[in-house]
């Protein structure tokens, strides 16, 4: 009997989808609800309290003034490009396990992921110095917990890819199973990327719709501008 038929984990499945890929899709479906709940919480409170937050000195601060949309756009672009490299890494494994190409691309994903995380660390520090903390407002709580949870997902993804990178030197990463393992990591990475596109839109960009943002965040009136 051939090995492929003898092993339960390599036997053909009823749906034709590998177990590992199916379970990752199921996990991602669950994670959709997870981020959906976090994003809903943020949006509900944003609608309820459109005017931002009060810093430690008691000054009213505005979300549009707080955000550094150029920096966040840059880190968003970096994360998007990391997904492109991830797709190349998966493709390299599917083309008969081209390990060199896999390593080059996955290293790019890791570096881009770290740049994204670096931007987030900088952003958090910057916001903290601007007076936004988890404790001083509902906005601070929802913002830090939502984006921080996403950052944790990215960090876990980076850790996973680092481990896969080093594992590729053991000579055990190859064949159908190796390609599948990389593809499953890729599914996770793309998902985390897509979630960020939604967060970037729902948390950042909508603050810039019209002069007051979608919530009407009540910036001080500018002479000559009709709102």
């Amino acid at each position: 009997m051939s090995h492929s038929a003898a092993h339960a984990h390599e036997a053909p499945t009823s749906t034709g989808i590998d177990h590992k890929k199916l379970i990752m899709w199921l996990f991602l479906a669950s994670d959709c609800m997870f981020f959906g709940t976090l994003i809903s919480t943020h949006l509900l409170y944003r609608k309820l309290y459109p005017t931002g937050f009060t810093d430690a000195e008691g000054h009213q601060q505005f979300v549009q003034k707080l955000f550094d949309i150029e920096l966040t756009s840059f880190s968003t672009f970096i994360l998007l490009m990391s997904s492109f490299l991830m797709a190349l890494a998966v493709s390299a494994m599917h083309k008969g396990g081209q390990l060199k190409s896999f390593r080059r691309n996955v290293l790019g994903v890791i570096v881009f992921g770290l740049i994204f995380l670096g931007c987030q660390v900088y952003e958090f520090t910057h916001f903290y110095h601007q007076g936004l903390t988890v404790q001083n407002s509902v906005f601070g709580s929802t913002f830090y917990v939502l984006t921080g949870t996403h950052g944790t997902h990215v960090a876990i993804g980076v850790l996973w890819l680092v481990l896969l990178y080093f594992y590729s030197f053991t000579g055990k990463l190859g064949g159908h199973v190796g390609a599948l393992d990389v593809e499953v990591a890729g599914l996770y990475w793309h998902f985390v990327d897509i979630v960020w596109i939604i967060i970037f839109t729902a948390v950042y960009l909508v603050e810039y719709l019209g002069p007051d943002g979608i919530w009407g965040n009540g910036l001080p009136p500018v002479p000559g501008v009709t709102r």
């Binding site: 919480t41 309820l48 309290y49 404790q135 407002s137 509902v138 601070g140 917990v145």
Partner: peptide, 10 residues
């Protein structure tokens, strides 16, 4: 000390 359900902070 977050404020998700803390009524005194909104």
């Amino acid at each position: 000390g977050a404020n998700f359900f803390n009524p005194s902070a909104g």
